[in-house]
């Protein structure tokens, strides 16, 4: 792939803390290599800002290899930028060309308040997992992972759902700020396996209740979540979640 350098204009959301109003700042950045990752470009920009005595831009990142889900940026109107099935940290500058203007915003959802600049508080997702995204296992020696036979189809579907990294792009893209793609991935991942059977009924009901408590909206099946999910979680998981909810809710005896 041909290497090139580019000069860019960045419009980045700056916000002091969750209470302040915030606004866009415009930055110029020169000689950006097409081989840099998007976050490396931000590193370079922050170096530049520190040298100029200005405040660097706060953004979340951790693994920088597409597995932790922290690098939430809404780039040119799309969560995680223009590449399909790619997190912000895996997005490379060759996605852009010389002279481009790039607008970077934080996730916008009531349930994900901005902490500072591009960083949002996604702890709502942790609390949803705590409400039911676990299984029971015996203590003692580690159980052999292959002790329980699982059919191939379910294992594959469960694995595909387990790929969700909890990044929140689905919420960011959704007109309803609905967390259903995330929730459906978490519920499907366990509902498809025998290990998930023990809490199966409680899980769907408890996790939906927590999602509502955190202030996410109702899913209206628009499909925006599926289109932007960096892990290509399928929207059919939402149908499975609804099935789990219906079955558990109708069967509950109190």
């Amino acid at each position: 792939m041909e290497h090139y350098n580019m000069n860019l204009t960045l419009k980045v959301w700056k916000q002091k803390n969750s209470q302040s109003a915030g606004s866009f700042e415009t930055y110029q950045i020169k000689e950006v290599s097409s081989e840099m990752s998007f976050l490396e470009m931000f590193d370079v920009l922050n170096e530049q800002l520190i040298h100029e005595g200005k405040e660097p831009i706060a953004f979340d990142h951790d693994c920088r290899e597409g597995i932790c889900g922290t690098c939430s940026m809404y780039i040119n109107g799309r969560p995680h930028g223009p590449w399909h099935g790619t997190t912000t940290c895996q997005l490379h500058m060759r996605a852009f060309k010389d002279g481009d203007t790039i607008v970077v915003e934080p996730w916008r959802a009531k349930a994900f308040p901005v902490i500072k600049d591009l960083m949002v508080d996604r702890s709502a997702f942790d609390r949803i997992i705590q409400a039911g995204g676990y299984i029971s296992v015996n203590t003692g020696v580690t159980i052999d992972g292959n002790a329980i036979p699982i059919n191939r189809e379910n294992a594959d579907k469960s694995f595909a759902a387990a790929a969700c990294i909890g990044c929140g792009a689905c919420v960011a893209a959704c007109k309803n700020s609905s967390a259903m793609l995330f929730l459906s991935a978490k519920v499907s991942h366990l509902a498809l396996l025998p290990q998930g059977e023990i809490e199966r009924k409680r899980r769907a009901l408890d996790m939906v209740a927590q999602v509502d408590k955190e202030g996410f909206g109702s899913c209206t099946n628009t499909g925006a979540c599926e289109a932007v999910c960096p892990k290509e979680i399928e929207i059919t998981n939402i149908a499975r979640l609804n099935r789990e909810y219906l079955a558990a809710g109708l069967a509950a005896d109190k």
């Binding site: 109107g77 799309r78 932007v228």
Partner: peptide
């Protein structure tokens, strides 16, 4: 959002 996702996903 300043730039909307619009018809790119739905």
């Amino acid at each position: 959002y300043a730039v909307a996702l619009g018809n790119r996903g739905s």
